[in-house]
Design a protein around this nucleic acid. Structure first.
Lengths: 242, 242
DNA sequence: CTAGCGTAACTGAGATCACAGATGAGGGGC
DNA sequence: GCCCCTCATCTGTGATCTCAGTTACGCTAG
């Protein structure tokens, strides 16, 4: 008998683009990383080497390296005696761990970013914020998550700190799958957008401490919602994996 | 003709221990990561898949995955059209980038660690500090670097924040090769040990802010020495790679 | 209807092979 | 003497195969 499908998660990301200087491994990694940040995979979902490679149209070799990297990033973890890779189900302690790292590093990045944001960057950021607002109004979770990440990453990227940016991305990689579930929390959109608008205003006024405060509030609020989501979701999902 | 050897760096880490539940890939990764933190490899040194696999006594497959992970961690980078992996030669901007991340995260870890350090932990830490002092007195760079990492990691590990610990380790992974060269800087030992003794005292007195101040001073001083080392070393080594 | 067992399909891990490109040493032409 | 060309050897990349272990389905006995 052929075992269960669960291929719906893979349908969102098609086969790789034909080689254009980059390696297959790098494409697989980038594709899966973005998918994890965007919450395309649920916590506890298992990722098989062969299934992933057939879905992406390559052999297992590049996929194995990409998945190993994602494991090193904390976006996947080995699970069970089978050593199958799955999306981690975060514990409450890990959530606090991540929250405090995010508060420190993202406020640092925000402060450093202020000098690097010109009119054109500001336009992109405001646009992302507007799209996010629209997604919140219409309840479009996919669009919301994507523009939320774009909004934050546009700010942080302006700090011109590649290593810091990489660390922040890895934190988002870890919380991505859970955020996807947390956006359904009551009034999550409202509270989050409040912080986002405050951050945008602080950017315009070039107020570093107000910007940091808004970012910290956003992270803290999100962590609370994530913790609540975890309590509802975690036990149910760990018990029955289907 | 067979190309250059440069195998001296590999002699320090022998072949892997026989399988004991862990995978070969994990062993290779751990071995090379510790070697990088300890500065066994010089900035700019190239790591070849096949040479590494023969040195470690395995096939290229586990080595390739381990090296890819190290690249993802920033401990290695692809270089040249050959895509050969080498130990990165940090730029001054990257040094600042790392320094600020370290200041934020290591002071956070230190503050969290205070509650987790009991008498037995304190004894281990003091021991590491004493060994480090002795290494500084005798000018034993190997011993100094090893005990320096042990001293810091014992403190941070007491914070019981695995994710934070992982990020900090990655930062040390990046600076390891350079620190090895920086310890020869004039009075580096003296200034560094001053911060270390201050940190140890703060731990005993359970003074969080004094501990953070000592850690921050240690990181800042080290970053200065690293920057100076970079100016002396970087241009010379990038030009002629042997 | 349930409990237990056997087996088939699936899991990752590692080794090996083939391929394309880059590198660098050495020889030949100017 | 200097420059360019050539070729052997290195480089990573990706595909394929085998192996040992685990999982889960389905059958059979009670």
């Amino acid at each position: 008998m052929i075992r269960g499908s669960e291929s719906d998660s893979w349908s969102r990301l098609g086969p790789l683009t034909f080689d254009e200087g980059t390696t297959a491994q790098a494409q697989v990694y980038a594709r899966l990383r973005d998918a994890l940040i965007s919450g395309y995979f649920r916590p506890g979902e298992e990722i098989s080497l062969r299934r992933a490679s057939t879905a992406l149209g390559t052999s297992v070799t590049p996929v194995r390296e990409a998945l190993r990297q994602l494991e090193s990033d904390g976006g996947l973890e080995v699970f069970g005696g089978n050593r199958v890779l799955r999306v981690p189900v975060l514990s409450e302690a890990e959530l606090i761990d991540i929250r405090d790292i995010r508060i420190n590093l993202e406020s640092l990045a925000a402060a450093q970013a202020l000098d690097g944001i010109g009119p054109s960057q500001m336009r992109l950021i405001s646009n992302a914020c507007a799209v996010m607002q629209r997604a919140a109004d219409t309840g479009d979770a996919d669009l919301y998550l994507e523009s939320n990440w774009r909004f934050h990453s546009l700010i942080y990227r302006a700090a011109a700190r590649p290593i810091l940016m990489g660390v922040i991305e890895r934190m988002w990689l870890r919380v991505g799958p859970l955020i996807r579930l947390a956006v359904t929390a009551p009034n999550h959109f409202g509270r989050s957008m409040e912080s986002h608008r405050a951050a945008e205003l602080a950017l315009r006024k070039r107020d570093a401490s107000a910007l940091q405060a808004a970012i910290i509030r956003d992270i803290s609020d999100a962590a609370s919602d994530l913790g609540r989501t975890l309590c509802d979701y975690g036990p149910a999902k760990v018990a029955g994996k289907a």
